[in-house]
Design a protein around this nucleic acid. Structure first.
Length: 471
RNA sequence: GGCGCCGUCGCCAAGUGGUAAGGCAGAGGUCUGCAAAACCUCCAUCUCCGGUUCAAAUCCGGACGGCGCCUCCA
């Protein structure tokens, strides 16, 4: 049984979908005005592992919605600056996001709606009209606001202290038009030069929070949905306001489980543009690192702990992953017939440990340890010749199974399949080197190895022959 | 001012009452034309001080240190 920490209750709870063995989940996606940074991707990678755990460990069906926020102050400003229509401008950044997501091995969610799709704008307007009928709103200067005093439950997710948050708390003073500073806008009145739609709530554009409520319920069906996820900073105000909107409109609980991923730091500092430490995947690659290593690094600690990104951390991740990939290559060399119960036992143990780790609030660090335990045991078995081909296949199957969830080995192998030197050339040089070694011309053999190494290809002489791999 | 989190080997990181997983790096050894890979051995008593307990890294109290949210933010 999967146990997940639920922000709503601040406790770990057993998770199961409400109906049909299908998990209906929603995760807040990116605002598409720039390339997403690695902090964003920490959240998306963790949500991806959650998704895969639900599917491959728990055996549930998953229906996941991840939105693209394609209308807000930043996207509008960006489009204006670029001199492009909003839709075209955001299209470009959606493409960039999908490319990065692909490199990081993120599974595609079932739905990736855009806020400005007509169906979604209509759903938002309908929800606002319902909120209006339910007495949760007021209008001012063409905008529609949510009146939080109409919802006694307001603040239950963030555990807001309604009295205590005055001194020191910075309150938005320029929003003078609101009754209460913490009331929030559902629909913004149209302004000259800004895109505007009218699906019943009046001419204007959506506020920040309404899209998620409307799209989640439109695409996932009746409330409550099973699970809602996002970065920890979204707890307040975004998720709190999503709850207010959804519950105010449907009069039912919005989401049963809330899962929040802690922040990624860079060299012990919060990522911020002024510090110049906001990295994108492209910048990681420019430093010679691979997406697979970043994914590994992101999974090497628990999602509810702050993770400090460092370049030495990336190096360590590269090496750790290499150990697994080298191991898999070595497994291929096992050809003996027979069967060894000790290997099977190690596989069974790894399976049990791996599963238990993920079921325990997605403990990916412990899950990785289960893999390394297996790697060590089986490597020792190979050295001792206490393993046969069928055993090796069983080991391979287990690792494939683990990687369905972690998604890190297959990613690395796909990268390795595209070496910096053409495969035919590598193979030709291996042959030349083999000939040199045969005539005991080790100087020539080593020269070949060195020259390939300089071009990013390492050679490894094994009993069965020479293997190449990317540096 | 309010709410909350964290402090485990040189680095990363599990473990949250039963006597310290795993990875990286390092030392010694085996194997190897050399190298690589692999294996074996070695490498921490958990920030500090008190307390509870037969037993605490794990619970309680305090100190010190780091961080988050309350405002756009994954």
């Amino acid at each position: 049984m999967l146990r997940l920490y639920n922000t709503l209750t601040r406790r770990e709870e057993e998770f199961a979908p409400l109906r049909d063995n299908t998990v209906r989940m929603y995760a807040c996606g990116p605002t598409v005005y720039a390339r997403a940074h690695i902090g964003n991707f920490r959240t998306f990678v963790c949500v991806d592992v959650l998704r895969r755990t639900l599917k491959y460990v728990c055996g549930y069906l998953v229906r996941e919605v991840v939105n693209y926020t394609d209308v807000d102050d930043k996207t509008i400003a960006g489009a204006q600056q670029a001199g492009k229509p909003l839709r075209e401008y955001t299209e470009h950044w959606i493409g960039a996001f999908r490319a990065d997501a692909g490199q990081l091995g993120l599974e595609l969610p079932e739905e990736t709606p855009r806020a400005t799709d007509d169906l979604n704008l209509r759903a938002m307007s309908d929800m606002i009209l319902t909120l209006e009928r339910n007495g949760h709103t007021y209008r001012r200067d063409g905008s529609v606001y949510f009146k939080i005093s109409t919802l006694p439950e307001y603040g239950k997710l963030a555990r807001l202290d309604h009295e205590g948050m005055r001194d020191g708390a910075r309150v938005d003073v320029d929003e003078y038009s609101k009754d209460d500073p913490r009331d929030f806008v559902l629909w913004k009145a149209s302004k000259p030069g800004e895109p505007s739609w009218d699906f019943g709530a009046g001419p204007g554009r959506p506020g920040w929070h309404i899209e998620c409520s409307a799209m989640a319920l439109r695409l996932l069906g009746e409330a409550p949905i099973d699970l809602h996820a996002g970065g920890i900073d979204l707890i307040f105000p975004h998720h709190e306001n999503e709850i207010a909107q959804s519950e105010g409109a449907t009069k039912r609980e919005f989401a049963r489980f809330w899962l929040h991923v802690e922040h990624l730091f860079v060299e012990n500092e919060k990522m911020s543009k002024s510090l110049g430490n906001v990295y994108t995947l492209a910048e990681i690659a420019a430093r010679g690192h691979r997406a697979s290593a970043l994914r590994y690094l992101l999974l090497s600690s628990h999602y509810r702990k702050q993770l400090n990104f460092t370049w030495t951390g990336m190096d360590q991740a590269e090496e750790a992953l290499r150990r697994i990939v080298d191991f898999l290559a070595r497994l291929e060399t096992v050809t003996a017939a027979g069967e060894h119960p000790a290997v099977r036992q190690a596989v069974d143990r790894a399976r049990a440990d791996f599963r238990a780790a993920l079921q325990s609030d997605l403990n990916t660090a412990a899950a990785l340890a289960a893999i390394f335990d297996l790697v060590r045991d089986v490597n020792a078995a190979i050295d001792a010749r206490q393993i046969a081909a069928p055993d090796a296949m069983a080991v391979r199957a287990a690792i494939d199974e683990f990687d369905q969830v972690l998604g890190v080995v297959s990613l690395r192998q796909a990268e390795d399949a595209q070496p910096p030197v053409p495969v035919e050339e590598i193979e030709r040089m291996i042959e030349e080197r083999k000939a040199a070694r045969r005539r005991r011309d080790f100087a020539a053999a080593d020269a070949i190895r060195t020259s390939l190494a300089d071009r990013g290809i390492l050679l490894e002489d094994n009993p069965g022959g020479t293997r190449w791999k990317r540096k």
